[in-house]
Computed example of a mutant assay.
Amino acid sequence: MVETIYGCKWSLTVYQLLANGINRPGEMVRNVEGLSTKVLNECLRKNLEFGILQRIEYAEVPPRVEYQVTAFGDKFLRILEQLEELQQELAK
């Protein structure tokens, strides 16, 4: 799981966007140069499958979809942060 998520260069970008309050797919694509809708959807799908993110659908016209980090996702992201800190220590 960690390899799949960490190996996808866009997952970390998506987590950063969510942390900054950007939780709608169209808004994500507009805020990140080089990120396509197709790649974003694949990334979001993987994160949904692992239970890191949840999809919230609103019954509105036009339809609105938002993503947010789950409780499990919060724990997972803390672990990723610790891995990043370890990597930085090794680089010293």
Rank of each mutant, 00 (worst) to 15 (best):
E89L: 14
L44A: 06
K38D: 13
Q82V: 07
S11K: 02
N23M: 06
C8D: 09
E57H: 09
L18Y: 06
L18G: 07
E3N: 10
Q54T: 13
L35Y: 02
T4K: 07
R64E: 08
Y67A: 03
L86N: 13
Q82L: 09
Q82D: 08
R64C: 00
T37Q: 02
N31K: 15
D74Y: 14
A59K: 12
E89M: 10
E42I: 14
L12K: 09
L83N: 12
M28P: 00
M1G: 01
N20K: 07
G26E: 15
A71G: 11
V29P: 03
V29S: 02
E60R: 12
Q87I: 10
L90A: 04
P25W: 06
N20L: 14
A59P: 08
R78T: 15
L40F: 05
V29F: 03
L48A: 06
L40N: 06
L90Q: 09
V69R: 02
L86F: 15
R78C: 14
I52Q: 05
E49V: 12
V61F: 00
E57M: 12
Y67D: 04
C8F: 03
A59N: 11
Y15A: 09
D74A: 08
E60G: 02
D74F: 10
A91M: 10
L86S: 09
K46V: 07
Y15H: 13
M28E: 01
R30C: 13
L35E: 04
G34Q: 11
V65A: 00
G7K: 04
G26F: 11
V2F: 06
F72H: 14
L44Q: 05
L48I: 12
N31Y: 08
G73K: 05
E85R: 14
L80K: 03
N31V: 07
K46H: 10
S36T: 15
N20V: 02
A19C: 02
L44H: 05
L18A: 07
L44F: 08
L48M: 11
L83R: 11
L44I: 09
V32P: 01
K92Q: 14
Q54K: 11
L83V: 13
E42Y: 14
W10C: 04
L83G: 15
I5Y: 00
E81A: 15
E81G: 15
G21E: 05
T70E: 07
G51R: 05
K38P: 02
L77W: 02
T4Y: 01
G51P: 07
T13Q: 13
Q82E: 09
Q16K: 14
R45P: 09
N47Q: 07
E60A: 12
P63H: 00
F72G: 09
E84Y: 12
L12S: 12
V14G: 06
V69G: 03
